[in-house]
Amino acid sequence: MTEVRAEGPDSVPPRQKAPTIYDVARLAGVSHQTVSRHIKGHRISDQSRERVEKAIDDLDFQPNSAARSLATRSSRRIGALAYEMTQLGPMTTLSGAASLAREAGFVLDIVTMNPVDPTSARAAIDLVKQNDLAGILAFTPTDDVRLELESTRFRVPVYVEHEVDDDAHRGNLNYDAAAVVAEHLLGLGHRSFAHVAGPGNWPSSRLRAAGFADTLRAAGVTPPQAEEGDWNPASGFDAMTRILRRGERFTAVFAANDQMAIGAIAALAGAGLRVPDDVSVAGIDDIAEAAFVSPTLTTVPMRFAGQGRFAFRRLLAMINGETLPELGDELRGTLVVRQSTGAPADASR
């Protein structure tokens, strides 16, 4: 328990001068123009960004957003429509956006919603519209939320982080992650698969399913019938149980995210199947638990914080009337091979 005590005036240390952008530049070893570009949300080199962010943290530098707002007569608040804050992906993505917003001198006003309830989405949109904002950042995981946003007129720039089925090709982060998993399993010699998919009304789920299925077809393998889960371990367990009841033969399981993969492994163990001796299992996201479950889980990181920062950079470009930044390779995850995948022991299974 922290004890707070009032002290006399003689005990108060002299107030130190607040660090400036020039102090940050000096400590980071870059120009003050580079620091300014980063604070405004513009893209700088990865090496410079790391040095600038460390200097900002070390100096506890705070951009003077209040003075900037008075000078420009513009709001320094961003509305953020968010969802599923208890889940790693959405929470980390929003944290990344909030971090860059803070560095750029903005405050993120977060309004949460239920992504599968159109009434909840409409209420959240109406609420965020009531505020004096510089722009709105909308993370829309489902088709229902996207439709609600498309039917709404806004007075400020709105960046909608949303995917559509036309994005089902190489270059899309979700599609690519699933394709990488499929290539890994095919490379190990697997030719018979099970698929624990995410909910069908989530574009990210459909894109991961497409990346997996297209890669199998390109290798001459017929994709399996998918069983849908709801992103959590219990739904992965249930989906895997339904697959097992069908009596189909398979040597590898692709789960659309790590949590469902963990549930699937539990269902396989309950059926007397060992991972990876009898069945290989791989997921997507690289959640913290993936490195500590038994067996440790093969997966592809999705770099959610980077995605959040990228979304904010694009919104800031819209606010400033600038060209939107392009997606860079730094957001693309590479396969992390762990204990849950291996060559099939019996190719006839």
Rank of each mutant, 00 (worst) to 15 (best):
residue 4 V to P: 00
residue 4 V to L: 14
residue 6 A to Y: 13
residue 11 S to Q: 11
residue 18 A to K: 14
residue 21 I to P: 02
residue 23 D to Y: 02
residue 24 V to T: 08
residue 32 H to S: 14
residue 33 Q to K: 10
residue 34 T to S: 00
residue 34 T to Q: 01
residue 41 G to F: 04
residue 45 S to M: 05
residue 46 D to W: 02
residue 46 D to P: 05
residue 48 S to W: 11
residue 51 R to Q: 10
residue 51 R to W: 07
residue 53 E to F: 12
residue 53 E to S: 14
residue 61 F to D: 12
residue 62 Q to C: 13
residue 67 A to E: 15
residue 68 R to D: 10
residue 80 A to D: 09
residue 81 L to Y: 06
residue 82 A to L: 07
residue 82 A to C: 00
residue 82 A to N: 02
residue 90 P to T: 12
residue 90 P to D: 14
residue 91 M to L: 15
residue 92 T to A: 12
residue 93 T to C: 09
residue 96 G to V: 08
residue 107 V to G: 12
residue 108 L to F: 00
residue 110 I to F: 01
residue 110 I to H: 05
residue 112 T to K: 04
residue 114 N to E: 14
residue 117 D to P: 11
residue 117 D to I: 02
residue 119 T to C: 10
residue 119 T to Y: 00
residue 120 S to F: 01
residue 121 A to L: 05
residue 129 K to N: 07
residue 129 K to I: 08
residue 131 N to Y: 15
residue 131 N to L: 15
residue 132 D to S: 11
residue 137 L to C: 05
residue 142 T to P: 02
residue 143 D to C: 10
residue 146 R to F: 11
residue 147 L to V: 14
residue 149 L to Q: 06
residue 154 F to Q: 09
residue 155 R to P: 08
residue 158 V to C: 03
residue 158 V to K: 03
residue 173 L to W: 03
residue 173 L to G: 14
residue 175 Y to I: 08
residue 177 A to G: 05
residue 177 A to I: 05
residue 182 A to S: 08
residue 183 E to I: 03
residue 183 E to P: 05
residue 185 L to R: 00
residue 185 L to F: 06
residue 186 L to V: 15
residue 190 H to F: 05
residue 192 S to Y: 07
residue 195 H to S: 09
residue 195 H to W: 10
residue 197 A to F: 04
residue 198 G to V: 11
residue 204 S to Y: 10
residue 210 A to H: 13
residue 211 G to N: 13
residue 211 G to T: 08
residue 212 F to I: 07
residue 215 T to F: 07
residue 216 L to H: 08
residue 223 P to C: 10
residue 229 G to C: 06
residue 231 W to I: 01
residue 232 N to T: 08
residue 233 P to N: 09
residue 237 F to S: 07
residue 240 M to A: 02
residue 248 E to L: 15
residue 256 A to E: 14
residue 258 D to V: 01
residue 259 Q to G: 08
residue 260 M to S: 06
residue 262 I to V: 04
residue 265 I to P: 01
residue 268 L to I: 01
residue 268 L to V: 00
residue 268 L to F: 07
residue 277 D to C: 05
residue 286 D to T: 13
residue 289 E to H: 11
residue 289 E to D: 13
residue 291 A to M: 11
residue 310 F to C: 06
residue 311 A to Y: 06
residue 313 R to T: 10
residue 314 R to G: 05
residue 319 I to G: 04
residue 324 L to Y: 10
residue 324 L to W: 06
residue 325 P to C: 10
residue 326 E to M: 04
residue 332 R to A: 03
residue 332 R to I: 09
residue 334 T to F: 10
residue 337 V to Q: 00
residue 340 S to M: 04
residue 344 P to E: 06
residue 345 A to K: 13
residue 347 A to M: 10
